[in-house]
């Protein structure tokens, strides 16, 4: 069985945020009004974190795209009292909105801050509603939501593969929306257990590391250092 993972090459990433908007569009993630955004309630399943160090003129910045880290040992799943946070047999951590009671234990438990709480019912002006993705339900107030590697893309890919009587290929058939968009090819996706995929190759390379690895969460998102 595939173990889907993402590799993020920080050397290639230009901080353009195409991934951020592509994710937002794909998953019908609500837009948060400026007043709410000021209170830190904006919702981006994929976001780019800028890290600024140093003093003028010796400044350094890194742009770190941050989706759900898709841990093999996910704290959010452990703390969820209603099994709304789940991990599929293929290792994809996703969230069942209908079960969520909004207790936000997962928000506290996640060391990467990737879970978002719907403080308000999402609203779109009528025209903008037209562009909603039919593949994804809209979440009501009071539930948590987060990146699930565009799990519905896997379902589509699986249906297509099943029609041909085979498994989904290790790369190229199932691709999350952020990865489709990225102009810099900074995001690479594939089966980490399949040694022929670019993702598995890069994840084993000398530039690879994982975020807060020491916590024992074993993320399936790998970062490649610059240089």
């Amino acid at each position: 069985m595939a173990r889907w993972g993402m590799v993020i090459d920080l050397d290639r990433c230009t901080g353009c945020q195409a991934c951020v908007v592509a994710c937002k569009a794909e998953n019908n993630v609500p837009v948060v009004a400026p007043s709410q955004a000021q209170a830190g309630r904006s919702m981006h399943w994929m976001t780019v974190i800028p890290e600024v160090e140093g003093e003028f003129p010796r400044v350094r910045t890194r742009f770190i795209p941050r989706p759900c880290q898709q841990c093999d040992s996910p704290p959010c799943v452990k703390v969820c009292p209603v099994q709304a946070m789940t991990k599929s047999p293929e290792g994809i951590v996703s969230h069942v909105f209908a079960r969520c009671i909004g207790c936000r234990f997962c928000v506290q438990a996640c060391p990467y801050g990737v879970t978002y709480f719907n403080w308000q019912a999402p609203t779109w002006p009528a025209d903008l509603r037209e562009a909603l993705n039919p593949d994804f339900a809209i979440r009501p107030t009071g539930v948590v939501e987060m990146c699930d590697f565009c799990h519905h893309h896997l379902q589509h890919a699986r249906e297509a593969a099943r029609a041909e009587g085979r498994e989904v290929r290790g790369e190229g058939e199932y691709t999350p929306a952020c990865i489709q968009a990225c102009p810099a090819r900074a995001l690479i996706f594939g089966d980490l257990d399949d040694p022929t995929t670019e993702a598995s190759h890069l994840a084993r390379g000398p530039r690879a590391y994982r975020m807060l690895e020491e916590l024992g969460t074993s993320p399936k998102v790998f970062y490649l250092k610059e240089g």
Binding site: C16, Q17, A18, V20, V21, A22, A25, E26, E130, A131, L132, N133, P134, A177, Q180, A181, C182, P183, A184, R185
Partner: peptide, 26 residues
């Protein structure tokens, strides 16, 4: 309804990718 914009893999400028404004063309 138009529900998604992605890069055209055949187009030599974008080769399948877009920038954030491209996605927001919707």
């Amino acid at each position: 309804r138009a529900v998604k914009i992605q890069g055209n893999p055949y187009h030599p400028i974008s080769r399948g990718s877009v920038c954030p404004k491209g996605v927001a063309g919707l």
